[in-house]
Amino acid sequence: MAYKTSERSDAATNRRRILSAARRLFDERGVGVVSMHEVGRSAGVGQGTLYRRFRNKGELCAALLEGRVEEFEGEARGRIEGGEESALELLGWFLERLADFNEENGPLLEAIRDSRVGGREVEMRRNPFYGWLRRTVAGLLRKAEAEGETRRDLDVEVLTDIVLAPLDIDLWIYQREEQGLPPRRIVAAILDLVLKGLKATD
């Protein structure tokens, strides 16, 4: 039994060392250019140990994002449950916050995307984070409809993914890096399109 406890402790220590090394190397040189081999070497662990913990760079980046995702979720939960804003106002805030999340974590999100099997977009939408985004937006759309802020004929299941689509990380990176568009300009256009399109007409 003592051996198993020690083994679990060693595993936790190795995980911390790997994540610490990855965070440092990514900050210094960028996510895209740092290899898994470099991370293992910097962490002082063998390649076998590294790949038992993280099968690829995408899994490593997902682990680095865990705390930031939890912070985002907690912030959103507190704001939505506060009940001081209308559902559409909250939806606007949520999309702005998601844009900030993309801007802050773009390279990590891109690495997670690149690691998905066959590069299929659907794989990115099966992860827990997208599931949470989807549930949050759907809930706000239903609340807005119930409170008369939108038309009464919303197809929430379809609209939820459409509302999130403009903030897909691939599109975000393209607009930021290839087109050179500033974040606030992108967000303003998205909010103008989404919120005006959803509002109830007289």
Rank of each mutant, 00 (worst) to 15 (best):
R52G: 04
G40C: 07
N102T: 13
Y51L: 12
R55T: 14
L164G: 11
K4C: 00
D202H: 14
T136I: 01
F94Q: 11
Y3E: 08
A138P: 02
V156T: 08
K199T: 14
N127E: 14
R120Q: 11
V158Q: 05
Y174Q: 13
G197H: 10
G46V: 02
M1S: 10
W93P: 05
E73G: 01
G67I: 03
P107R: 15
Q175P: 05
E89Y: 05
D192Y: 09
R152M: 12
R151I: 00
L159T: 10
Q47M: 13
G48W: 02
E7M: 03
E71S: 14
R113D: 13
I112F: 06
F54R: 04
T136Q: 00
G67R: 14
L154E: 02
D168C: 04
G32F: 13
A12V: 03
G118P: 02
E123V: 13
E38P: 08
V187I: 14
P128C: 07
E85K: 15
R116Y: 14
L164S: 05
E73H: 05
R53G: 12
T150G: 10
R23N: 13
D153Q: 11
V39L: 07
L195S: 06
L171H: 10
L167R: 05
R184W: 04
A62F: 02
R79C: 04
A12I: 00
G148D: 03
G78E: 14
S86A: 14
R17L: 07
A62M: 06
L181E: 11
T136M: 01
D170S: 10
G131T: 00
D27G: 00
L133N: 05
